[in-house]
């Protein structure tokens, strides 16, 4: 029997890798993929909790997270498209209109 903690550590590791990607990558598409990675990490922990607590609620939550992730991907990629069309670049370090 694999202990729950192992799953949670795995989940945390994937989450942190996703976060690292989000914080450090130049390419906005990869950043976006990092966000998906973080969502997946959460899904892993939810499903494993569900399994160990013999409860379906985690699954329901994962189901909704996947729905939202799909919606988010559609919108996010549309935003990237619009951005790319206006800026001719997908690199966030070249976008600093908000610089004070």
């Amino acid at each position: 029997m694999v202990p729950l903690n192992w799953y949670l550590i795995l989940s945390a590791a994937v989450f942190m890798i996703g976060m690292f990607g989000f914080l450090t990558r130049k390419n906005v598409i990869i950043m976006f993929m990092s966000v998906e990675l973080m969502l997946n990490a959460v899904n892993i922990s939810l499903v494993s909790f569900s399994h160990y607590l013999q409860d379906m609620r985690g699954h329901i939550l994962v189901f909704f997270i996947i729905t939202v992730a799909a919606a988010e991907a559609a919108i996010g990629l549309a935003i990237i498209l619009a951005l790319f069309r206006n800026k001719q670049t997908a690199h966030v370090d070249e976008m600093n209109e908000m610089k004070g």
Binding site: T67, A70, A71, A74, I75, L77, A78, L81, A82
Partner: peptide, 12 residues
Amino acid sequence: LLVAVIGAIVLA
């Protein structure tokens, strides 16, 4: 999902 569909079209 509906919002996402419409939003994606409008934005893109």
